[in-house]
Nucleic acid binder design. Structure first.
Lengths: 269, 269
DNA sequence: CTGGTATCTCCCCCAGGGGGAGAGTCCAGA
DNA sequence: TCTGGACTCTCCCCCTGGGGGAGATACCAG
């Protein structure tokens, strides 16, 4: 039986942290003296403590650590861990994008932006729509796109997929998100259903590369809109001209960003 | 002039976050209405907001973001950013170590540990000693080793360097740390001075690979000590048989870990 | 038995964000 | 000019995963 200080020395987990892990049900001491409250650990618990230590170094949330430790089957445990390694890899990819887009931001001469004003007519499409948290957009997007493809089959010449992004997504971190594919006769299947997109006047530009870097282009487009004295209204639109479905080379990806505007002197009476 | 909601849509920073950045002096609105408190931003502030966004994605602390934005000289700014990219890289290395050591921990059959009992005689060495936080050990270690090498010259055959780790380092996250190199006539120079290391009985094993993974070996050694009914006392000792000074191949590194013990039936009267 | 050290619980603090209440402000349409 | 809805304000609390420190007990060796 090891007192907490001794166990701390053995595992390199601080006493405070061990107590917290006890409270949290992550690592229950083998024995807790009922009268004194002293925690006593056994040497058998050292490996467990070290697994926790490692998982925490990988920023696995305590709740997930608990789940991993609770998995009785070693295979299942390995699967749970692998899941987090995937998450780590995704995070690394995000980091890479952030670094390169930071370089772009800090570069002295930003290339001028090509912006086009376009009147988008009303159109009926096959769409999936949901209330989504900003953090979940990536996951949701993948699922929705898969469902659209399942309902409509392989890409046709009806046009690339697109999305409508509620302003609340940016302002409050959650809002409505609509993903669509053009279709002459939109089916109803699963979450897919026909939706009538209203006509809208858009200021349009094209973002090159990873979607994670798109907010820089958003800013440039927004600046243009502000500078050219047009008024903003309604959800932002995107169209995925070239994306991960088309090529693995993310440098070749093209996302059209459409910012709804009132064209001065045209829409005003 | 853009109200906060509009600016939020343009930069993809949430309204809450923009307010926080204002409070924190990171991104001051161009104008704050004195009577209403409304924040108004200019379109020129969009690039700044996006730089902040990117830096935060890289987990740069707000204080450092402030410093980077405050740097007037672009070169200086680039240097500050580069500093953080170095930190990111170091973190990535730590992650890799954690992953591989996690694999080792979850492997079904841990190889048996070679433990040796050794009576270490009293010895006088050239040492640097300090009170250090656990987080700063790496930095402190590098500095202290450099200072030792400066005082003693290139490696001799007097033996590899070593360290003494106070228990408080593991239990509370800070404690005394002593780094030494054996020397017949220890000099006094800078922080380097002669120190008499007391004689001690050690349970010794050798850790292979990155030092970041050593705590697993610590646990195994500790288990052995507990199981073999010896009592623990005093600071842990390490000796750096092969380290980054010797080879870049971290798989070849060897760290001897010595756990102070009383040998039953020998030290007892 | 006594004193020093270990350990207990409890409360407050940190970063960097989010939720929500309640009040005041802006602006377009009637 | 009024009015209602949308926008924004401040303020307080909560989250995660830790750390600092106080004050009270427990353990254990001399």
């Amino acid at each position: 039986m090891l007192a907490i200080g001794e166990f701390s020395r053995l595992t390199h987990l601080s006493i405070r942290t061990l107590r917290r892990y006890h409270e949290g049900g992550l690592l229950e001491p083998e024995l807790v003296d009922a009268s004194s409250g002293y925690r006593y650990y056994s040497a058998d618990q050292i490996p467990t403590a070290q697994v926790i230590h490692r998982l925490r170094e990988l920023d696995v949330p305590l709740a997930d650590v608990r789940r991993i430790l609770g998995a009785s089957d070693p295979d299942q445990r390995a699967a749970l861990v692998a899941e987090h390694l995937v998450r780590l890899e995704a995070e690394l990819a995000r980091t890479r994008v952030a670094v390169s887009s930071l370089r772009r931001l800090l570069a002295p001469d930003p290339p001028p932006l090509q912006v086009e004003l376009r009147a988008e007519p009303e159109v009926t499409v096959a769409a999936v729509e949901d209330e989504v948290d900003a953090d979940d957009v990536g996951t949701w997007f993948a699922g929705a796109m898969a469902e659209l493809d399942a309902a409509l089959g392989p890409p046709t010449d009806a046009g690339p997929p697109g999305g409508l992004y509620d302003n609340g997504l940016f302002e409050h971190g959650h809002g409505r998100l609509l993903l669509y594919r053009p279709s002459a006769e939109p089916p109803r299947r699963g979450r897919v259903r026909p939706v009538r997109l209203p006509a809208v006047e858009l200021a349009v530009t094209t973002h090159h590369g990873e979607h994670d870097g798109a907010d820089v282009t958003y800013g440039q487009l927004g600046s243009w809109v502000v500078a050219n004295a047009l008024t903003v209204a309604g959800p932002v639109r995107e169209r995925y001209l070239v994306g991960p479905r088309d090529t693995d080379d993310s440098a070749a990806w093209r996302t059209e960003i459409g910012w709804p505007v009132f064209r001065v002197g045209t829409d005003l009476p």
